[in-house]
Design a protein around this nucleic acid. Structure first.
Lengths: 196, 196
DNA sequence: AATATAAATGAATGTTCATTTAGTTATCAA
DNA sequence: TTGATAACTAAATGAACATTCATTTATATT
């Protein structure tokens, strides 16, 4: 039996991520992907059921990787300040190391496939985060909040900063560079917002 | 000379907004749009140069409408708290009244066409916002911040709440309803973050 | 009523799309 | 060395796509 060329599968995934990050789900097609990797379009159907399956599978894989990194050195039992700071820094660092992967996931986040992606991700991420937030509320480290309110205040600013950077336009200058300084500033403000 | 059927142009815009809001830029095509409105595809090219021109033009129009509403009862000279509260409430109200238009603009925000849209929007919105933020810094109402940091903390949480709502999934329950209560809570946290 | 003219169209163009099929190739177990 | 088998492919399919073109239609002006 002929063996799978794992390198080609990796190249396929990598190229799909890049194409979607740079041109959106719009600019992505199986034929373009096959051509870019040097593979027959039919080969892609050996690995994935159809186009949607490919996007959702790769999306879930990258999301899982991102979430894993965001939980590095994190436990739900941490103090709220330390826990949030840890997660923030992990996410910021992941963006610095993998800007294309982050942009890829952002493209998915605003697509109709995102629910499918999250369903496929699985894992105990949600559970851990809920434990963390509920624990912090019990320990009176933060005010009682619906999870969505907490999440919106805690993490949306980071991803907006990333978006500004990706779009490369500042309201003030023409170029916008995302600095560690700005991330730190923003984190400080977020912490201030959530402390009782 | 035959006269333009303004009603059909409006129907065309409305349908384009709805299609893109519900199915993304992916699920949007000139032929589907024409069919949905009951018009020949060729007619669309009387009004718009091409597909991209249609999306960018309608996008700019809706964005302009949204920004105008967000500036209702607002002047850059207002106190920071009042000014931010006013804008927040305007934006929240606009979402309650026009959820589809907001989702349409969100789809554009994460697309490659967004820079073109913003270029076409024009207006003095950016100037007014800059005045407002700089004024607040001078009056020592808020700490000195890069515009992007300010913006990320001030408004990203609102749009994240909206996104949770649009995606209709909560991390805790299955259904997520965005309540005025949650918006008010979030606004309070944002104000707390930005006060010196 | 006749004319000019821009709006509107039906049908077609050539392209790109996702996916399938029939056949080829590489590798393992015998 | 020989089959068995799964990986892989070239080529094709039909559908959907953006856009164009030759015509027709409606209206404002004359």
């Amino acid at each position: 039996m002929r063996t799978r060329d794992e390198e080609k599968i990796d190249a396929l995934k990598e190229e799909a991520i890049t194409m979607i990050a740079k041109e959106g789900l719009n600019g992505f097609s199986i034929q373009k992907l096959a051509k870019a990797v040097g593979v027959s379009p039919a080969t892609i159907y050996v690995y994935y059921q159809d186009k949607e399956d490919l996007i959702v599978s790769v999306g879930a894989e990258v999301t899982r990787d991102m979430l894993e990194h965001s939980l590095k050195n994190f436990t739900p039992e941490m103090s709220f300040g330390e826990g949030l700071k840890t997660q923030w820094k992990n996410r910021a660092q992941y963006f610095i190391d993998n800007p294309i992967k982050v942009e890829f996931v952002e493209q998915l986040r605003y697509s109709q496939l995102y629910n499918d992606v999250m369903k496929k991700v699985g894992g105990d991420f949600k559970v851990k985060m809920s434990q963390f937030v509920c624990g912090a509320i019990e320990k009176k480290e933060i005010i009682k909040l619906p999870f969505e309110v907490y999440w919106s205040v805690a993490f949306a600013p980071l991803y907006q900063l990333i978006r500004f950077h990706t779009q490369g336009k500042s309201y003030v200058n023409d170029k916008y560079e995302l600095s560690t300084r700005q991330m730190t500033q923003t984190l400080e403000l977020v912490l201030k917002a959530l402390k009782p």
